[in-house]
């Protein structure tokens, strides 16, 4: 639980002060490392809300980062146990 809270803090800090090439991989790694990391969807929304979404049309009704996080989490649900022992 402490590790998860630490992970959340690191992802949040990365989103707020780091370049996108740092926080996007950090978010992706967190989705892989922490089991059922639903917070990633909220972080996806946060990224799109504070930095704006650059994909016109698609982003007008769906947040691209949050949607990507949702898809990654759904795909990982059945795959996770076969890939590795999680934290």
């Amino acid at each position: 639980m402490t590790l998860r809270a630490l992970g959340i803090a690191i992802v949040l800090l990365a989103i707020l002060v780091m370049p996108y090439w740092v926080y996007v991989p950090v978010l992706l790694i967190s989705i892989f490392v922490f089991p059922f990391f639903w917070e990633a969807i909220l972080f996806g929304f946060l990224i799109d809300v504070i930095y704006g979404s650059g994909i016109d049309g698609f982003s007008s009704f769906i947040s691209p980062f949050a949607f990507s996080a949702l898809i990654s989490l759904i795909i990982l649900l059945p795959v996770r146990k076969r890939l590795r022992a999680h934290v």
Partner: peptide, 14 residues
Amino acid sequence: LILLGIFLAGSILF
């Protein structure tokens, strides 16, 4: 379903 619920709630709230 939980993930979809979070996504929908997030879409509205954010």
